[in-house]
C-alpha cells in the first residue's frame, strides 16, 4: 500500500509535481532526521544531513527503478551521505577500517530525550565505529532484515551479522558503564 503510494508520488514528482515531492519529503523527513540524530548525535548535523539526503534523493529520483522499497533506497542514500559527512568531519581518519570516532560534541545533551534508556543507548552508539553504528541503527531502529541492510551497505549479510555481533559486544560494555 505504502510502496504503491510512494511509487505514485515519485511518478508525479518526476513529472514536475512539486506537491508530490513535498508530500514525499514530509512522509520520510522525521525518519531521516531521527536517523541523523542517532548517527551523528547532534541536532544541527542531523538537520544538515537530512537536507543533503533529500537533495541527493531529488537528484537521483529518476534513477530509482522501484527495485525494493523506496524506504530501503532512501536509507541507502542516507547511509552514503552519512559516510560522506563523517569523511568531511574527520577526513584524517580512515573510517573504512573501523576507526572509532567518538565525537565529544556529539552528546545526547544537545537535544532532549524523554526516555533515559533511549538517551543512554544513543550516547553509547556514538562510541561505535560508523559501520557498526549503522548496523545497530538499521537493525534496531530501522527494523530492516539482514538482507536489506546488506543491500543498503553493499556488503554481504554475513558481514552485517559479524558487525552486529561486534557492536553488541561493545554496546554491552558501553551500556554497563552508562548504568554505573
Amino acid at each position: 500500500m505504502f510502496s504503491q503510494s510512494d511509487a505514485s508520488l515519485i511518478h508525479k514528482a518526476l513529472a514536475g509535481n512539486n506537491k508530490a515531492w513535498l508530500k514525499l519529503i514530509k512522509r520520510y523527513e522525521q525518519a531521516i532526521y531521527n536517523y541523523g540524530l542517532r548517527m551523528t548525535g547532534n541536532a544541527d548535523d542531523s538537520m544538515d544531513l537530512m537536507q543533503e539526503v533529500f537533495l541527493s534523493v531529488f537528484r537521483n529520483l529518476a534513477s530509482y527503478r522501484g527495485e525494493g522499497s523506496f524506504k530501503s533506497w532512501l536509507f541507502r542514500i542516507a547511509h552514503f551521505r552519512c559516510v560522506e559527512f563523517y569523511r568531511r568531519k574527520r577526513y584524517h581518519q580512515d573510517i573504512d577500517e573501523g576507526e572509532e570516532m567518538i565525537d565529544d560534541r556529539a552528546c545526547a545533551s544537545q537535544w532532549t530525550f524523554e526516555h533515559t534508556q533511549s538517551q543512554e543507548l544513543v550516547a553509547a552508539m556514538q562510541a561505535l565505529p560508523l559501520e557498526q553504528k549503522a548496523v545497530i541503527e538499521l537493525k534496531f531502529f530501522g527494523q530492516f532484515t539482514f538482507e536489506e541492510i546488506a543491500q543498503q551497505l553493499d556488503v554481504s549479510a554475513n558481514t552485517i551479522k559479524s558487525r552486529l555481533y561486534s557492536a553488541l559486544g561493545k554496546m554491552k560494555t558501553l551500556l554497563e558503564v552508562t548504568d554505573v
Binding site: 522525521q30 532526521y33 540524530l37 526516555h115
Partner: peptide, 14 residues
C-alpha cells in the same frame, strides 16, 4: 537495545 529502541520517541523535525 530492542527495549530502548522501542521506547525511543522520534524527535520532531525543526
Amino acid at each position: 537495545i530492542k527495549q530502548s529502541a522501542s521506547e525511543y520517541r522520534p524527535q520532531s523535525v525543526p
